[in-house]
Computed example of a mutant assay.
Amino acid sequence: MSIIKKIVLAEDNSILSLLLKFRLEKEGYKLLIAMDGKEAIELIELHNPDLILTDIMMPFISGLEVISHTRNKLNLQTPIIVFSAAGQEEMVLKAFNLGATDFMSKPFSPNELVIRVKRLLL
């Protein structure tokens, strides 16, 4: 019996969160949803997920700070996929420099996300 992979999704857009939760749970993953970066860090510390999906621009703590905390404070090598609105190249480069694994520009295809998630969680 395979172990269900846990994913923390940090996204302040509740409609997008629900869509991604539905789509990824249909694939057999367990989604833990954070509405902001502070909540994301709490979920990561509590559940040690197999993958982290985070928006860059969020209330309280940004996705960049979530990446930094995960890599530097928690010393986790958990794969991190970052999303951001198009036209934020500087933020994307910062995300990769902090340790992001992959990047997707918003709006993106949930089907493409599923493929990227599966590839990282083989």
Rank of each mutant, 00 (worst) to 15 (best):
T101Q: 01
V82W: 00
Q88H: 03
R23D: 10
N97E: 15
L32Q: 10
I3T: 14
I80N: 01
G63N: 04
V8G: 05
Y29Q: 10
R71W: 05
H47K: 15
E27W: 02
T70F: 01
P110W: 01
K21C: 11
D50V: 06
V92R: 06
S14N: 07
N13M: 05
V8C: 11
K6H: 15
V114S: 12
K21S: 12
V82E: 00
A86N: 14
P110V: 01
D12P: 11
G28S: 13
I81P: 04
A10Q: 02
L18N: 15
T54S: 10
R71C: 08
G87S: 11
V8R: 14
D50N: 13
M35Y: 01
G87Y: 07
S62K: 00
H47Q: 12
L18S: 14
I61W: 00
L24I: 09
K5V: 01
Q77L: 10
N48Y: 08
I61Q: 00
I33R: 04
K21F: 07
I115K: 12
N75H: 12
D55Y: 02
M35N: 05
L20G: 09
S105E: 13
A85C: 14
I7M: 11
K6V: 04
T78F: 02
F60A: 02
I4C: 13
D102P: 11
S17D: 05
E89A: 15
A40P: 15
T70N: 02
V114D: 09
E25H: 13
I115A: 15
A95M: 07
L20E: 00
T70Y: 08
L64H: 13
K106E: 03
L64C: 09
N97G: 15
N72W: 10
S68Y: 13
P107G: 13
S2F: 06
I44M: 06
I61A: 00
N97Y: 11
F22I: 15
S84L: 02
L122H: 06
S62A: 09
A40V: 14
L46T: 12
S109T: 14
A100L: 00
Y29V: 10
L51F: 10
N97F: 07
F83T: 09
Q88N: 15
G99W: 10
L64M: 13
I7Y: 06
G87R: 06
H69I: 07
G87W: 04
V82P: 01
A86L: 12
R71E: 13
I41V: 15
K30M: 09
K30D: 11
L76F: 06
I7F: 08
A34V: 05
V66F: 01
